[in-house]
């Protein structure tokens, strides 16, 4: 009787543990971001590049823009570093492919956000929202999330519009 009871508890525990691990692996797999190239923001910033040097539409369009392979090639045509990752750029260029950069900032579909509005007209610094990305030497492995609270806090402080439809599309 007693032994059976333990056996059942043991089974339940093992099953639970298995399920938990499986779920963990599954979940982390679905949210983990692997960039095609281990891009080092810090190096580029230290090298004197402006954010808008690569994110070229940041000042005049809603989205900041992803650098096209050709843009990377303007500097990386020939070897600049000894990092083997750098070769990958030239491999993409040779295949005439765009580098499939993964998005790390996740805004819900019902939110409208314009970089132009914040960067060009309101002169906000990129770090106001993107904090330390410029200082990171590894690409983030998980999506960066924004909460409505952080938007609102700033909007209230700056006396910007807090009208719902100003941001919700």
């Amino acid at each position: 009787m007693q032994a059976n009871k333990f056996r059942i508890i043991g089974l339940v525990l093992v099953a639970g543990l298995l399920a938990f691990t499986w779920l963990r692996i599954g979940l982390s797999k679905s949210t983990e971001i692997r960039q095609p190239i281990r891009f080092n923001h810090k190096k580029h910033v230290q090298g004197g590049l402006e954010c808008s040097g690569c994110h070229q539409t940041v000042k005049d369009q809603a989205t900041a823009g992803r650098p096209e392979t050709s843009l990377c090639m303007t500097c990386h045509e020939a070897s600049v570093t000894k990092n083997p990752e750098e070769n990958l750029i030239r491999e993409y260029a040779q295949r005439h492919e765009e580098i499939p950069w993964q998005r790390v900032i996740k805004l819900p579909d019902h939110v409208f956000f314009s970089h132009r509005r914040h960067v060009s007209t309101e002169k906000l610094d990129c770090t106001s929202c993107h904090e330390a990305i410029g200082q990171s030497s590894e690409p983030p492995s998980r999506p960066i999330k924004f909460s409505m609270d952080s938007c609102l806090a700033c909007h209230q402080k700056m006396k910007a519009s807090v009208d719902c439809v100003a941001c919700h599309k």
Binding site: T63, W101, V104
Partner: peptide, 11 residues
Amino acid sequence: DPLSEWRAGAE
């Protein structure tokens, strides 16, 4: 999944 959907946004 918005992560797989990248709109460079150029208009």
